[in-house]
Each structure stands twice: as C-alpha cells, then as structure tokens.
C-alpha cells in the first residue's frame, strides 16, 4: 500500500512542484509547533508565576539588549514572544481546524440533502446560503460575537455560521452531478433506501472537493478568528491566539516595540501561506476537470 504511494503520480507530481513542497514543509513545521510547542520553549506564558517583570520588553536576541533566553524578545509582562507565539499557534490552529470540522459536517449534510432531494428543500437551503453570502463574513461573525459574547466556543459558533455555506454549495454542486449517474440509479434498482444511497454512494464521490475546500477553509477561519480577536471580540485574553497577540503588540507598536506584533503576524502569514500552497496543489491534483 505504502509502496503504491511512493510510486504514485500524486507523489511524483508533489516532488516536482516547488510550491507544494514549500507549503508542505511549512505545514510540517507548524504541525511540530502545535504538537510539541510547549516542549520547545522554556517558559509557559500562561503561568503568571513564571514571569518576571524585569524581563519586560526585551528586544529580539540579535539586537542590543537581547537575550538568548528570549530569541524573539519579550512583552510588557516579561513573556517570551516565541513561547507566546507557540502557545498562540496552538489556539489558532485548534480553532481553525475545529471550525472547519463543524462547518464541514453541517455544510456537507445540507449540501447532500439539497442536491439529492432538490425541490423546495433545495430552494430553501440554497436561498439561506445566498442571503448569508451577501453579507461580508466578518460582519456576520462580528454580529454573532457581540450577541453571544466572547469565548472559544462562541468563536466556533460564529465561524461555523459563516463557513457552512461554502461546503453546502460545493457539495450540492457535486451531488447534482452524481445523483443522475447510473450507479445511483443502480442502487435504487438494488432496493437501497435514500439514506443508504446518500451515505454509501454519493458521499464518497463528493468528498474530493470537500477535502480541497477544507484546506483553504482552515486558513480562512484562522484569519477570521485573528481579525475577531484583533477587534477584541474573539478569544479571551487568558488564552491568546495569534490574532490576539498581534492586537496586544499593536498597542505598543508605535513605541518602537515592533517585535510584539510583527512576529505573531509573520507566523500567521506563514501558516496561512503554507495552507494555501498545499490547498492549491490538492485542488490541481484532485480536480478531475483540470486533468
């Protein structure tokens, strides 16, 4: 099975695609940060007891006054910026992936129903999606956040409410093209119930675009969450994501303490860039229409 992968066209194309390799490398680095981040830094930025105010606003280590203990400098409480970023990356990725999973489940289910049954169900679901798409997603998220209050769970609700539409539209389109194929008719002739036809026959055949959409959606969600947190309606201050780190650093940016916001900004950029590079590669590889 694995030897099949190493000799596959997929792997061959990956090996000859510089941006796919670059994106994958970035994602591997971020995977290590997410999984093993706390082991890589000495300080736990959430543990207030371990902070020393004397270390506050130290510049990055290569500048005058920098210390090798704080490679990217420290913030006003003497927190190691690198440690904050590692912990913040975990929060950002956790939210991005969870929101992707939630909106994927809801959007895929609605898209399958709309495409399979058509008729009024399709009309209702897709019109709701249209209405939703006509508002900027930030606006919807902001509205929901100000209604529900802040917190990771509230952020997830807001992101899911924004994100299901992409899945529903993608899956509905693919479902429409599958549902009239003869293998679905054959399943009817075999006597399968609708639910089983959807689960066993249609779902596996619409998953490819879902995978492609999912990679890109994780990146989008991370950015929206960062924006929300930057505006102060995102994650709570006790569990800062990359977006909140940027906001915190932004307050002192014009005092010359640029490292507090620039480094989290670079990390979020690298993360989303990596996700999008891999997403583009997957889209080209998995989309049969481009082949």
């Amino acid at each position: 099975m694995m030897s099949g992968f190493w000799t596959s066209e997929f792997f061959h194309n990956w090996r000859h695609n510089a941006s796919a390799i670059a994106g994958s490398t970035l994602l591997v680095i971020f995977a290590v940060i997410v999984l093993a981040g706390p082991l890589l830094v000495a300080q736990d930025p959430y543990d207030v007891g371990s902070l020393n105010l004397l270390d506050s606003y130290k510049p990055p280590m290569w500048l005058d006054g920098g210390e090798s203990a704080f490679p990217l400098g420290t913030d006003g409480q003497g927190r190691d910026v690198l440690a904050s970023i590692f912990y913040g990356t975990r929060v950002s990725v956790l939210i991005g992936v969870s929101a992707m999973v939630l909106s994927c489940l809801i959007g895929t289910a609605l898209g399958l129903l709309a495409g399979f049954y058509g008729g009024w169900l399709d009309s209702v679901i897709m019109r709701i999606a249209d209405v939703q798409l006509s508002f900027p997603s930030m606006l919807i998220a902001l509205f929901l956040m100000s209604a529900f209050g802040t917190g990771i769970d509230k952020v997830l609700i807001a992101l899911t409410a924004v994100g299901w539409v992409v899945y529903a539209r993608t899956v509905r389109g693919s479902t429409l093209s599958e549902v009239n194929k003869e293998y679905v008719q054959a399943a009817r002739v075999a006597g399968l119930r609708d639910g089983k036809i959807i689960r066993r026959h249609i779902l596996p055949n619409v998953l490819t675009p879902v995978i492609v959409v999912s990679t890109v959606q994780v990146g989008t969600f991370i950015l929206i969450e960062a924006s929300l947190s930057f505006l102060g309606v995102g994650v709570p201050i006790t569990k800062p994501s990359l977006g909140l780190l940027i906001k915190n650093g932004f307050d002192v940016l014009f005092s010359g303490l640029w490292w507090n916001s620039v480094f989290p900004g670079l990390f979020i950029m690298a993360l989303v860039f990596g996700i999008n590079l891999v997403g583009d590669f997957l889209r080209d590889e998995l989309n049969p229409r481009l082949k």
Partner: peptide, 20 residues
C-alpha cells in the same frame, strides 16, 4: 419485486460506483 426484476445500464463507466 426488485428480486424479480433487475437492470443493466448503458454507460459502463458511470454505472459502477468508482469508490466500491
């Protein structure tokens, strides 16, 4: 009734689920 009556389809590419 479906045990008495079955069907063969036209398109040998579309009539089999590619994932089965």
């Amino acid at each position: 009734v479906r045990a008495r009556m079955q069907m063969i389809f036209q398109d040998p590419f579309a009539s089999l689920n590619p994932r089965q």
